[in-house]
Design a protein around this nucleic acid. Structure first.
Lengths: 341, 341
DNA sequence: GTGAAAGCGCTAACAA
DNA sequence: TTGTTAGCGCTTTCAC
């Protein structure tokens, strides 16, 4: 490694001021509010800034309590989910698609526990390292909305029940789609419909389960057995094994994610059970794999990317001072494929 | 929305100093280098800092040219790839798995063009918004390594040819795996092996093609036709159509990514061609879908997550002042499945 | 409309 | 070992 060149220092506001023949204060005013300077000097200052290739210092701005153009995403989960789970990569993709056009950056931090999570939000915001947050992956009794509200941090909450916090919410509502699915099950003679839930502490997992229960109830059916599958392929496989070990075998299973359903496929196959002949199967997410699986997997399509882009869009608007919509509703959609005729 | 509480201001170094009965300077020394203060006062200062719940201001630190504990990832691609491409989400997952244990955050920025890319790297670093970069997705004649070196920015380059820059490099070497694949093709009687390349401007795409060419040469075969598929399912499908429209049909196709191979599957199927009977197919990446496709897809497994974690690990070590290994070699691995007997 | 000056929270050189 | 001081680059109040 050869030694790097030290690099000429980049121009500061003082350089611009000097070149334009004014003081720092004038430059700051001209380039920010635009008021308090005559249009002539303002133009001269702008010109000087361009010639010098000046751009403001994030750090100095932050020290004065200004926004930096960054939004924070704090995730209390294993970083592996970026790789395995359908949600995060797509969600992030949606966020970035909005930010990339806006000169904004995303600050991402994966944290191991609730304590670190709380202090991370605090430091990130109180120091103006980020201007606001996108809050997702809500847990039961999640304290983040209240905490962020206390801090005065702008935020958009994704996937929370409507009206549950003081922040704008993007709701990911799959009630109808799940109802259609269960309707289908009921119509085709299923009486024992099981559910594999993702994670007992996660709100989205709970919501899917609730919708499944409600729909069964509406069609006069008892809820079948429930197992937890942790949203992974292996978890889905194990949950399916437990399901088969129980007394009466279910004739249909609604998995809380496609990945878990795929895990279920292999266990059902090994047990010599045909899909959908012996057991009908449905998933949630509609990942690419779903339509390629054999048999193609019936699932509830959820618009992860749109969730991300809407959330980002709304947060950005809030930061610009616009009044955000209290609720933005996103609805899931049933994709009937041969795994659940 | 009720008005948020303004929130008590958080403690500064002066508060700590006052409480410990010393000056700001002493606090700074005690909490950073640890030298220049007696162990007694140091302890008293630490104590005061804890009691006050003090934590340093990122902004003030950055203004003094200190490291913040952030690493930058600037990506000149459509944010959609996070959703569709196999690489990025996994790579990011690897990075986060290292950073989450180290109190570091990732700053991500997707940029549309080379110009924005360059200024983004500059501003991010010169303002000490990030301490260093992970450089990936190298293009032919990529100027980023030289530029970052000029700026004096610490960086780790992923997927560049060894010795091509002054930075530590993680090489993702699939030469042997691709050679084994071509060997297999040659052994099973294939004489006309086509290639669907991802993107002509990307170094990794070029490398895969080179390895394919070299291997064919070594086994006494001429390189078959090459089409570009842009690393997407649709692109792979279209490239396959063009391949079939040409004169002599290839008996085997090596796709530069699994996604493109899956796109090829559908076109071959529609053309009434059996896999591998009429056309043998192989991909690259080993995404989850590969083993679930029908027939299961032969592919070259590439360790995306490990690429990310190694790169992050090395960059963090550099930031701590350790001398990094010049090259870390990661090798691909052939996964033979029935699409290419 | 413009300049001067104070200060954001911190680091580091210099004195004492 | 400690305190004092001068900035880092910018915003913002206050005179003029």
């Amino acid at each position: 490694m050869t030694a790097p060149t030290p690099g000429r220092k980049r121009p500061t506001i003082s350089d611009v001021a000097q070149r334009a023949g004014v003081t720092k204060g004038a430059v700051s005013r001209a380039l920010n509010s635009g008021t308090g300077v005559s249009s002539g000097t303002r133009e001269r200052i702008r010109q000087a800034a361009v010639e010098l290739g000046w751009s403001p210092s994030y750090a100095a701005r932050a020290l004065n309590g200004k926004a930096l153009g960054t939004i924070g995403l704090v995730v209390r989960r294993s970083p592996e989910i970026l790789d395995f789970d359908a949600f995060f990569a797509s969600f992030l993709s949606g966020i970035e698609s909005v930010l990339s056009g806006e000169e904004h950056a995303t600050v991402i931090r994966f944290v191991p526990d609730a304590q670190t999570e709380a202090t991370t939000y605090e430091r990130l915001f109180e120091d103006r390292f980020v201007d606001g947050f996108l809050v997702t992956d809500l847990r039961v009794d999640d304290e983040r909305p209240a905490m962020l509200h206390r801090m005065g941090a702008p935020a958009v909450v994704v996937g929370a029940p409507e009206g549950s916090s003081d922040f704008p919410t993007i709701s990911n509502d799959s009630r109808e789609a799940i109802r259609s699915l269960v309707h289908r099950f009921a119509d085709t003679g299923h009486r024992r419909v099981a559910h594999v839930q993702g994670d007992p502490g996660m709100l989205h997992a709970l919501q899917r389960r609730r919708h499944w229960e409600e729909a069964l109830h509406d069609f006069g059916l008892e809820p079948g057995p429930v197992e937890y599958g942790g949203y992974t392929i292996e978890g889905g496989a194990q949950a399916t094994e437990r399901l088969l070990d129980r007394g009466e075998r279910p004739t249909a299973v609604f998995y809380g994610s496609d990945l878990m359903a795929i895990g279920g496929y292999s266990v059902l196959g090994e047990a010599g059970l045909a899909i959908p002949g012996d057991v009908a199967v449905a998933g949630f997410d509609d990942i690419t794999l779903a339509s390629f699986a054999s048999p193609p997997l019936t699932t509830v399509r959820s618009r992860h990317r749109e969730l991300g882009s809407s959330a980002a869009r709304i947060l950005l608007d809030m930061l610009k001072g616009q009044e955000p919509p209290a609720v933005t509703r996103m609805t899931g959609e049933l994709r009937l494929r041969s795994s659940a005729g």
